[in-house]
Design a protein around this nucleic acid. Sequence first.
DNA 1: TAATCTATAATTGTTGACAATTATTGTTGA
DNA 2: TCAACAATAATTGTCAACAATTATAGATTA
Lengths: 227, 227
Amino acid sequence: MISTQNNDSDQVVEHVISAILSNRLNPGVKLSEVSLQDEFGFSRNVVREGFLKLVDAGVLIHKKNQGVHVAVPTEEQTRQIFQARRIIENGIMQILLDQCIDNKLDIETIEKLIEEEEQLHRGGKSTELTQASCYFHLRLAELCNNQFLVDSLKPLILLSTLAASVYTNESSGFCSYEEHQNLFDSIKSQDRQNTIDAINIHLDRCIESLNFEIKPKAKTNYSHIFN
Amino acid sequence: MISTQNNDSDQVVEHVISAILSNRLNPGVKLSEVSLQDEFGFSRNVVREGFLKLVDAGVLIHKKNQGVHVAVPTEEQTRQIFQARRIIENGIMQILLDQCIDNKLDIETIEKLIEEEEQLHRGGKSTELTQASCYFHLRLAELCNNQFLVDSLKPLILLSTLAASVYTNESSGFCSYEEHQNLFDSIKSQDRQNTIDAINIHLDRCIESLNFEIKPKAKTNYSHIFN
DNA sequence: TAATCTATAATTGTTGACAATTATTGTTGA
DNA sequence: TCAACAATAATTGTCAACAATTATAGATTA
């Protein structure tokens, strides 16, 4: 479970997550305890605790005496990630459809998200668009009012972003807002088969857009990514 | 990073998980750091780290200055847990079916699990049967060769066990081995609709067997549950 | 120049002490 | 007997110091 802001260490978690989603923090980059300590004024213990949570979620990788690195998903892992996403997000679509049929779907929220993506796309802001795309998927999960679904999906979304960062030359086309629009239209028209097809095609396109021939770059240290 | 001996804190995690699955550790029970430290000889840090992981998974609940307690799922949480399980385990069934069709399903493993459950049932060993039932669901997830699915399902299974412990008078009938047998038969006969029906009926029966009128008991301290 | 080795610096891992908070026990008084 | 309060004990939270390990930079040699 990655979220919640009860603790200082959760702030560390949120900072790292935000940095990953916005492509400021790339796969393989090493995070040292001291650097985050200095940038935010957290104590080392707090930073360690935050790291542990992210390691638990698979977003960071820990090696003994070598600290933590941002995960670099392998091809196999990426396929597993998208297999799991397909399962969970299919379920999410069913729930949203049920909500729509019962007139309980928060349509406005989704419309806003898509509009936001559209503007970012038109403005050519590709990194912000990537972040918004991921957020779209997470937000749909949150609309289900099921914490466990969100908790299951969140690490998968983060790892998808990392995979995209590794296996694309331009991440702009990774997760298209037009397909989000299609998905939303299918939900609104309450067509179950169409909706399921839409999410599956969307996820298939995401993974098909990846080029696994690209080899992960050497690991680098980060320098003042936050702030 | 947080512990060189990641193994040690994972041992703490495993001990707690095993204690929950076998009904030695009940919902609401407080776990103190010192007690586990004494029983296993782990350092306090290691125990804290293990607790943190379990808190992250939602299995333990942490309150500031009051340590950790075993989670007591509410009715609402329990419904969310089973909604999430339905989604994930439906997906697992699809994967196992595909494996079966491709002649890649490890049928022997599943047969052994069911046989084991049958013996425990005949022997009247209800707590062991509960543990075996949960293990059955987890084992099916593992057969999918997808770590992310296992990671998503595992906390849900643990929380299901806790919910059963709270909302039943006798936990024996919670998760029946006959339905596991039915499920397995459906998979083997490669009947997709039957299989999906079987898992959904099974999960529905699980939650229907719960009596949410039962109010959680007062929280107690534990005393030498492990060992 | 490139490679190897060595000394130094930096980072992580571990422990224990102490502060802050909560829980427990014992006492008093009506 | 019971409730309220005070003193004590137990538990958790935090931090800093030190040990262990790894990374870096410099020197040496071919």
